[in-house]
Design a protein around this nucleic acid. Structure first.
Lengths: 202, 202, 202, 202
DNA sequence: CATGAATGAGACTTCATTCAT
DNA sequence: CATGAATGAAGTCTCATTCAT
């Protein structure tokens, strides 16, 4: 089960290219970024990129997909490790904030494309929709159970799930823009506090 | 003070082009949209667009600017007409939801560009940042006053202002994607309820 | 034989347009000048230019032709009025220098087009060639006669004619560029002196 | 110190493109020539031209610059090798006539642009002015020295320098237009004779 | 495998010319 | 006659993609 030399090389190249792609796409956006930019940032020739990816679009999507899966995994794992809804919400918010803080380049591509997909018709729409809704559903489920158990008042679970999502998203944006002076922990606490009080107050 | 024939024509053309532009930009995004697309959608020739706008960028920005100012005005007017913070928040959310519901095309351009600007360096960044922060500041001020008066508990006013903004934004997105089955009024009530309880609960 | 109103108007318009055309073409050259430039300079609308000229090229050529004929007439008249070859040469040089000094705009169009025609294949080539060679021939003839009469030494008449032309041309260029500090009379005297001595010295 | 493969290719391409450019610009002039014309004449695709030059203007200027420097070098070298003023003038005229005879395409671009620059405001004006005046100054200096030494009569050195230039220029033009039946040597002798007699006759 | 020179489709923009008013 | 809004052909330049080395 030792990876062959060939596999190692492929791994090495794709990883380098994707990393460069995230940086370049993050800085310039999809359209204004050129394959040459990415190749140069990855320290390879333009042709090499095409040895590993079929098109610019492919590179882009791959540079998104990996991050999306990573982040999704992290969020799910953390939420599953949490007991109460409050803890689950905290796990959700923390996961997102920490992940994007550690992968700012990724956020810079993810965010615009994600929002664009929500509104325009793009090739990635379905995939992104799926990833998005899956995350929302995780929260939705947890909220519904909490309502059922009487842990919180009766709230529209889906709408609240979206609200959690949106507030989290907003916090990340503020942090990235340098509009936030607080620590991640403080931001998390604020969001969880606001949302939790919003959910529990009768 | 009757508008001259020339003014009427200019009015007619710019309005037609801008409307077409919003549709096309909304569908394809700035980069993928071509002047030819817009011209054809407006029922004029390519050159005609350049009689009224100096560049593609100009058309784009104009199609954004008008909406931004309109919306901003509407929001400010409604908030000023509101007494308590709760009413102000309700005014804010209602204004946004109603406006974007009535101007879906506009939202489709506004949203991605707006989000992109938050994260990437674009030519519109400063203008959009300005418009955005102005709106946030409106809320922030109202919240700070409410805290001072003891109407709500002590909350970080700016962070809450952002939260109001983000939740509103999320609602609009959901509505546009057809993920929402509720009426605008219901959406507003939900958001205000959640936020208000979040702010007041001790 | 009183010109009709119609003729007067035509006269008025064409003259205004041509004058404007000379200024604009002189400043920008044929390709970079636009019909709009000319129309605006003439104080009429673009369409009006097309009432009197069939095309941009027509305007250009007309703005050249008139000047060429004028100048040619002036030169011929002055030379015919001169007795000796030296006087004829002086008449030639004076005519050119004075005319172009009084019609700088015209020179600015004439010169490049003229030189271009000498070397590239343009639509005006034949006409310009004709005008050019006619002038040269005037000089050539006078020189040949002077040689025959023994007034000057035996020189290749055509070549000398060209030399007179070229030196004159050079003087005009220098004057227009502001490289000359001498008066027209001084320039003429210098040229005639140099050429005359060149022709007579044994 | 063997040139690398890349350098050889670059050399090959730039040379091919420049050669094609000179032909096309020579035939059509700067404005009417298109990059596509040049590319096709060079046997490459449009994009290839842009691999080696940043703009049409660049191609043009490069196709001028090389020739200007070459010619300038040749003239200076020949004049420096000449002893008396008469020899220097002969060197000057010979250099120009021979060079342009050997590089007709170059003359076809050089001449109109050069003359245009003398009269209109173009981007190349300064560079061409510089090259022009430098050549004139060479002659001027030699003439002034000859006057000082009493080798020729007292003449305005600059004006005579221009005259040498202009007569030379005229000869080249006549040759290129096929109006001349004499050899280069004969043309040179004629010009030098005429000018020299013009300068020395008391 | 890797390279990067070459390609050519396609975008923005200008402007000569037309024509309805 | 005069106007100037409208047109669309044509030009410059970019860049995703290919392919010979």
């Amino acid at each position: 089960m030792v990876p062959s030399k060939k596999q190692l090389l492929t791994q090495f190249r794709t990883s380098g290219i994707l990393q460069a792609a995230r940086r370049v796409f993050g800085e310039k956006g999809y359209e204004r970024a050129t394959i040459d930019d990415i190749a140069r940032a990855a320290g390879v020739a333009k042709g090499t990129v095409y040895l590993y990816y079929r098109s610019k679009r492919d590179v882009y999507w791959e540079s998104l997909r990996q991050g999306i899966l990573d982040l999704s995994d992290d969020t799910v794992r953390r939420m599953n490790g949490a007991g109460t809804l409050e803890e689950k919400v905290r796990a959700f918010v923390t996961s997102k904030l920490e992940y994007f803080d550690a992968h700012k380049d990724f956020f810079r591509i993810y965010q615009p494309e994600f929002r664009k997909a929500l509104v325009q018709h793009t090739a990635f729409q379905k995939q992104l929709d799926g990833a998005y809704l899956e995350q929302v559903r995780l929260l939705e489920l947890a909220i519904r159970q909490a309502v059922r158990k009487g842990a919180i008042r009766s709230v529209p679970s889906r709408a609240v799930a979206f609200a959690v999502f949106d507030i989290t998203w907003g916090l990340i944006t503020q942090r990235l823009r340098g509009w936030s002076e607080s620590s991640i922990a403080e931001d998390v606490s604020f969001a969880v506090d606001l949302l939790w009080k919003g959910m529990t107050e009768r």
